[in-house]
Design a protein around this nucleic acid. Structure first.
Lengths: 342, 342
DNA sequence: TTGTAGGCGTTATCAA
DNA sequence: TTGATAACGCCTACAA
């Protein structure tokens, strides 16, 4: 347990006071040039480095932020994390990671743990299960700012960056209509999810904007399990008059749908076309892929959220500073068209 | 900037000393039951929570470990991270993440930064570019233990968990031979990579163990770029006598190979079979997939590495403890056979 | 059973 | 230009 050198050590060697050393190390103008040089020389010799824990303690800051997100196995979130890392590096911050794995209790534990570690701020993308936000509200007491991204609470007075699916979906449905599609179905998620209500609403409005009527029989839902996905798509292809195109809750659901469709002897993009959400990088290598994906800009969302978080943190450090207006930014999604002719 | 309650505050309220409070809060036996109760009651009332930064500072520990890995967009590493997180949670530790993105300089910066933050230990899976290890050796000075996993340095006196590709490759090649394959090619990586030399050596020995001779014309290499991948596979299928099976450097290379093979009008798993490394979860959904993957147990490797790291950390905290023997554990890989009849 | 005092490493304030 | 000292929050050896 040999201790690392401290300014005290340097002070002793040079027979000066610790305050002189402290100042000399940071080139404080009040310290004479000779002294400064001597101090810095010795510091280098004995391999002195400032003990950040001491500073953190003194400044009541840890120079680390927490990131809570569902799962890094989703390319969307690993891209998002890269955005956070980049912003953190630019601000000299560390990133503490926590995967909630879509588990509400785990999310709570992670947040609690980050709070205990006194992170200076937290970025969050919610679990699918999350519908109460006490564990985040609680952070106010500790002056830990929170910025949400992508999966954000349905709640006022929060900071967030999210993505407006309407723009992308409208582009997609318009494209489908221009290609002659008239019956465009929807495979939605479980009713309890906010994302589900959102998808339905946007779907309805996009149909309307294209002068199509909403038909209940081509709207089905899945519980996001493989079985649920298969059941949903089978319901659609079993219809007397199946939809010729389907908007699918997300890419993972779509993978199962494509398998089912092919097993049923149908051809993707000719018998039935798909549009989905997420933009898996792997589509590039698949034989059957959606006509289009709705790009939601993971990196952009997360880095924007991170940058605002740092603004909040830095602003709080200024004594008399006025509070920043909340960030409530919504990025427009965009349709990404794939070459369906592979 | 309203400060959080401290033990001092509690002490003042109850007219006892801070040491009494400190002890009472941790149920120290020397403190009377009444006092203990009174202290804990007030603590609860004013919402006291211990300031970990102060403890960290005092104990010269941060209760966080760093994880440096190439890229979380690879499912292998995101699985590995989950292993680390689970081990960290069990040990009441935080995980600071750093993606090196296969960039040596970035790896160095991350390690430097983690050192500055005085993490209690570091887990590393190296960049493909990394061939010098000074930035890790340097950590000894700060008593920061390092454990490597999967992509480990070629060096003695380090702690690591890695995966022995031989076992899996032998299973795969034996399987291929049992299916009648006699010409089994290899698409290897760039020469400068340790993994490349390793693949070649294992490939050679597995052929030998199956009484096959090494044929240079069916050994090609790629620089891992898309163009390189395509060039490599084209070289093989352009041969007068093409191999009927090919061992491929990794799944990402294989994706390009499969595309090329299909474009050339060949059928995967009948005209040509593949075996690859990584075990992408997505294969399940692909039309053309390798005959088998070599499973390398990301979660198992990383959690084993993490657990040992915590042992090191805890051991170092015991004053007179003898140093632990280094961990140099090698897990056997395993062939995972896919149902090629989809 | 409880209190006092010192220390962890650094910086800021005030004094010299 | 430099030094002494207090403070950050907590713990602990020693004293009472």
């Amino acid at each position: 347990m040999n201790k690392l050198p401290t300014i005290k050590e340097i002070a002793k060697r040079l027979n000066v006071s610790v305050s002189t050393v402290s100042r000399a190390l940071r080139d404080h103008p009040s310290i004479g040039l000779v002294t400064t040089m001597r101090v810095q020389k010795v510091a280098k010799e004995i391999g002195y480095e400032v003990n950040r824990s001491a500073i953190h303690f003194k400044e009541r800051k840890t120079y680390s932020i927490g990131v809570v997100l569902p799962s890094l196995s989703e390319p969307f979130f690993s891209a998002a994390l890269t955005g956070v890392e980049d912003a953190a590096e630019a601000n000299n911050y560390n990133v503490i990671i926590g995967q909630s794995l879509e588990n509400f209790e785990r999310e709570k534990r992670i947040v609690e743990n980050m709070k205990d570690h006194r992170v200076d701020g937290i970025l969050v993308s919610l679990t699918k299960e999350t519908s109460t936000y006490d564990h985040f509200d609680n952070l106010k007491k500790y002056n830990i700012p929170v910025v949400f991204f992508d999966r954000v609470p349905n709640k006022r007075d929060i900071n967030f960056v999210s993505c407006n699916l309407h723009s992308g979906m409208l582009q997609a449905i318009s494209k489908l209509v221009s290609m002659g599609h008239k019956r465009i179905g929807l495979i939605n998620g479980p009713a309890k999810l906010a994302a589900t209500r959102q998808r339905l609403q946007i779907y309805a409005s996009c149909l309307k904007e294209n002068q199509l009527v909403l038909e209940q029989d081509i709207i089905v839902s899945t519980d996001l399990s493989k079985a649920g996905n298969l059941k949903a798509i089978h319901k659609l292809i079993a219809l007397d008059e199946s939809p010729t195109a389907v908007i699918v809750f997300n890419d993972y659901v779509l993978l199962d749908c494509i398998a089912a469709v092919k097993a049923a002897g149908l051809k993707v993009n000719s018998d039935i076309s798909f549009v989905s959400f997420a933009n898996l990088p792997i589509w590039e290598y698949m034989d059957s892929l959606p006509l289009a994906s709705i790009e939601q800009f993971a990196y952009r969302q997360s880095s924007m959220a991170a940058e605002f978080l740092f603004k909040l943190i830095n602003n709080a450090a200024i004594p008399g500073a006025t509070e920043l207006p909340p960030l409530q930014h919504i990025i427009d999604s965009e349709m990404v068209l794939y070459h369906s002719a592979k």
